[in-house]
Structure formats: C-alpha cells, structure tokens
C-alpha cells in the first residue's frame, strides 16, 4: 500500500513536471509577446522601449533561465508577477478560484442530482420507451455546445423575465447570490448530467447482470429492493469514478460559460491571459488545473479502493 502511494506520488510529480515543460515551450512559440500586446493600447511599438520592457520582464533571458526562474519560484510559492496588472500572480489567481469553485460545485451538484436518478431509472427500465427516451435526450444533451446552451438560457431568461443574472461581486442577498450562480451552473451542469446519466446507466446494467443480483432475485427479493439497495449500492463505485472524470470535463464548460455569463472566475481568466500573452498567469493557471486534475484522479483511485474491498492497490 505504502509503496503504491509512493509510486503514484512519484508518477504525479513526473507528469506535472512534463506539463510544466510542455506549457512553457508552447507559450514561447506563440507569435508576439506581452510587449506587443502592451503596446497595442498605445497604438504603436517603440523598438527601444520594447527591448527595455522585455529586459524588465526577464524576457531577454535564455529560455532555460526563464524556465528555471519560474519553477524555482513555484517551488518557493512565488508565482511571479502578472505582466499586465503588475500584481503578484498569486494575488490575481487566488481571489478568482472561489468564484469558479462555487460555480463548479453547483454544476456538479446539479449534474449528479439529475444524472444519477435518471441513469438508475433508465437502467432499471432497460429497453422500455422511457429508457429509449432518456437515452436520446441524454445524447442530445451531450451534443449541445456548452456556450450555445448558455446563450439559449440567456435568451430564454430575457424572454421570460426580461432580464438576466449579471455577475455582482457583492450580491444583496443569499437569493441573489444563488440565482447569479445557479443559472450558469445549470448551463454547465446540464451537459455533465447527460454524461453522468449515461455512465450511471451502464454501470447499473453491469451490476444488474451480476450473479449476486440473480441470486437475490431467485431468493425472491422484491425488484425494488434489488434495484435500490443491492444494485445501486454497488453501482456507486463506478459513479464515484465518473464524478472524478467529470472534474476535467467541467473545466471546458466553465471556460465558455464564464465567458458567456461574464463571470470573473479563474476559467475565463485563462482565456484572457492567453490573449494578453500574460505568461506568468497562463503558466501558473495551467499548472493549477493540471494539479487539480491529477489530484482528483488520485483521490478517486484511493476512494475506489476504500469503498471496494475487492480492489487491492498496487496489485
């Protein structure tokens, strides 16, 4: 067990190191750098000043030195300075995380509370019209681009209520705050719920085919009891995994949804920073996302092992 943990942690570090290399290299082949973007608002590029600013920002250093500076700082908890705002990158990133976390949490809650029950129903009623209908609806849900769904929700909101929830850093009441997050969360969550529903359904079906369910059935246990106490209990495991996988899936939806709804979260910030060529922000944000994904996967594996006595880690 311990050796497995050590091995996993080591691999995680290797992965993160690789990501840092990939991202760093990718950002350096981007045509144009921050200095050009900074000059954009000034309407010209002054070559002498450009060289000076590049020097100030350390962009004249050899790539290896730039990389070492970044990683060195990262290990000491110093993420450098945003080129645009000239504030510490950490101070720019940190306050945006809770906003996205709230949105992601609500979206996940929405996705699970819609997807799991529907998936179970669909599996239990396999090959009925209801199952058929739910499968088509979930497939359709997966086919909608997240930003389009967001736009449609915006349009519907305008048509129905004549207004839309606009992000406000200091909402007047709990209710305002909830509405502000709930609508975009629904836009993100709806797609995820379709995925969760489909995966829940298939893992339920898998379980329903197992021997012990057949045994329970032959012993005369009621269908209801079989479905909900035996089968669902066992299907929970794969569902946990799915929710882990969802974390990565959600981020894509969050990026476009935060853009559509003008929410100043960390996901949209990534797009803005890429546009600005604000390397310190992009690098650190991508690393942050990678850490979240890697850690979530790790935790899911551990959870899986903890929940299922049949699985022995490291076997």
């Amino acid at each position: 067990m311990l050796s497995y943990l050590v091995q996993r942690l080591f691999l995680m570090l290797v992965t993160l190191f690789g990501i840092s290399l990939v991202i760093f290299a990718l950002l350096r082949i981007v045509p144009g750098n921050i200095v050009d973007v900074l000059f954009d608002a000034a309407g010209f590029v002054d070559p002498a000043e450009k060289i000076k600013i590049e020097k100030d920002l350390g962009l004249d250093q050899p790539i290896v030195v730039q990389y070492a500076t970044w990683i060195g700082g990262l290990l000491r908890g110093d993420l450098g300075f945003s080129y645009v705002s000239e504030k510490p990158a950490l101070a720019e990133i940190l306050p945006r995380i809770p906003i996205t976390a709230r949105l992601a949490g609500l979206a996940l809650l929405f996705a699970v509370s819609l997807g799991v029950p529907l998936g179970v129903v669909s599996a239990v009623k396999q090959n009925t019209r209801l199952d058929y209908f739910l499968r088509v609806v979930s497939l359709a849900g997966l086919s909608l681009p997240a930003f389009w769904l967001g736009l449609l929700i915006l349009m519907a909101s305008v048509a129905l209520f004549g207004t839309i929830p606009i992000y406000n850093a200091a909402p007047k009441s709990m209710w305002d705050s909830f509405v502000m997050y709930a609508v975009p969360a629904a836009a993100v969550g709806l797609r995820s719920s379709a995925l969760i529903m489909r995966l829940t359904r298939s893992s339920m079906l898998e379980v329903l085919r197992q021997d012990y369910i057949r045994t329970a059935r032959s012993k005369g246990a009621s269908e209801r009891s079989i479905n909900y106490s035996h089968a669902l209990k066992n299907a929970i495991l794969p569902i946990v995994t799915i929710i882990g996988v969802e974390a990565a899936f959600l981020i894509g939806g969050l990026i476009v949804t935060e853009t559509v709804f003008n929410i100043p979260g960390v996901a949209r910030f990534l797009v803005e920073a890429i546009r600005w060529r604000d390397y310190p922000i992009v690098q650190n944000l991508v690393m942050f996302i990678a850490v979240v994904v890697v850690v979530v996967n790790f935790v899911v594996d551990l959870l899986y092992a903890a929940l299922d006595p049949r699985i022995k880690l490291g076997a």
């Binding site: 690789g18 990939v22 990718l26 899936f249």
Partner: peptide, 24 residues
Amino acid sequence: QRLVDILQALPLLVLALVMAAALG
C-alpha cells in the same frame, strides 16, 4: 505512457486553447 499522462492531465479545451494560441 508518461507522455500520455501529461497530455491527459489537461482538459481537452485547455490544451487546445494554449495550442491554438501558440500556433495562430
């Protein structure tokens, strides 16, 4: 496998975004 791990640790859209920006 490490290469695959690396590519897989980033969500599809995030990696595509950075790559699209890098390539133009």
